[in-house]
Design a protein around this nucleic acid. Sequence first.
DNA 1: TGTGCAATGTAACATACGTTATTGAAATCA
DNA 2: TGATTTCAATAACGTATGTTACATTGCACA
Lengths: 255, 255
Amino acid sequence: MSLASLVRKLEQFVRLSPVDHAILNRASTERIRHFGPRVDIVREGEKPRDVHLILSGWAYRYKQLEDGRRQVVSFFLPGDICDVNVFILREMDHSIGTITAVSVADLSREFFDRVAAEHPRIVTAFWWETLVNAAIQREWTMSLGQRTALERMAHLLCEIWLRLRLAGLIQGDSCDFPLTQGDLADATGLSKVHVNRTLQELRADGLIVLKGKTLAVPNLDRLKRAGLFNPNYLHMDHEGRQLDAVTTPPDAAAG
Amino acid sequence: MSLASLVRKLEQFVRLSPVDHAILNRASTERIRHFGPRVDIVREGEKPRDVHLILSGWAYRYKQLEDGRRQVVSFFLPGDICDVNVFILREMDHSIGTITAVSVADLSREFFDRVAAEHPRIVTAFWWETLVNAAIQREWTMSLGQRTALERMAHLLCEIWLRLRLAGLIQGDSCDFPLTQGDLADATGLSKVHVNRTLQELRADGLIVLKGKTLAVPNLDRLKRAGLFNPNYLHMDHEGRQLDAVTTPPDAAAG
DNA sequence: TGTGCAATGTAACATACGTTATTGAAATCA
DNA sequence: TGATTTCAATAACGTATGTTACATTGCACA
């Protein structure tokens, strides 16, 4: 519905000027598309055109092997950008599909060119987004390589929780949670059956309350401990810190 | 001992002007450091300063859990850059260690600022490097989540092989290969014992000849098949394609 | 307001991979 | 050149997780 989540997230990290706000606002209201749940937005092999900004809804990035084995490699939540500058590459190496109904703003190459030339604070913010996404992907590598099923699941839930919180999507101690056990299986590299067992165990330990499409976490610290979760890789620790742009911004006066 | 590998790699993708070459050349000869094998260059928790360009030798990026479990999340080969613009982040979320003796050029924040302002072709090349590294990390997620031990190992060897080839480090059908079975275990999420079993199997199938610190691959296509290896994620398919910079380069006349 | 299909839950059984232990071969170094 | 350590190889055994199968619940839509 809005780009509030994106701006909220980026501003955690970089102070954006009114001009920056206007730029982002315009870009994210110009070309909007709506998708139903469980459809592909982008398919592996396609030529990348626009960069997608998730305005509302959940989506994921996934890859498939020839024989059908499938791995979810990232989740996209409101405010997330699917690969700044992808259009530099000749073809997509993965697909992007929706989980819920999703609204997307298409950001053009020209938009990024203009930003690169004129709005260094936004450039910094986009680099931050890119670096954090890379860090998340590394942490998934860690999870899949070293964490047990229980730790992996707890860790994933913590990550999603904190990202939702940053986007302003946690109410009290609960949130919308549209992922099926099948989705969780594809993301954790576990079988559906074992995902079920693992969720039962988390429930039995009182770490989560997951019912229907709602997740509640009564005690985040306990869930973190169960997942050996160290939030440093999300680089959210910037409260109060107002970082300057990479280069001197031409519109500095406006800030 | 030179930046040949980096330039060779970047030029696969973006045509760099003589000015660009000069810029990269100066940056990579100004501040060089040498490290012995098996030492840390950067530690998790530190404040990132410079960006590191590997001039020679092999290194890896790794993360550790409180209890010591360790995951190698990337390998760095000559010509690789460890995280363009990391200094945007407040602290490192991983460590970087050497495998062999390594020479590193430290690239300063000021260097990246200058490049951002004045050398758009290099900016594009750095974005390409960043996007490919992200794609590699996703593929590792895929490997750890879905591939069997044998597939995983074959896949990793294919990837390293192609990256070495791009850097100009394959001689005939063999290359230097300084990774121990312990390194491979930490990278694939397997135990050392099972890495050994898996290598034996690859040997028995005639897919690799691995002896001492030398790896030979008699038939790359067969190894690729064994690893369900699809090279698209490396985005090397740019032969002859001379992409323009993201924005109009100020030094276009020089190219 | 059923009816059908997807999602969840559980049980029984199978296996790929981990663990521990031991040995020999190579490097590394005094 | 022997002493010391690291690395590779292999065996015996254990287990976390996968597979198959089927029952149950819940929700979309007729």
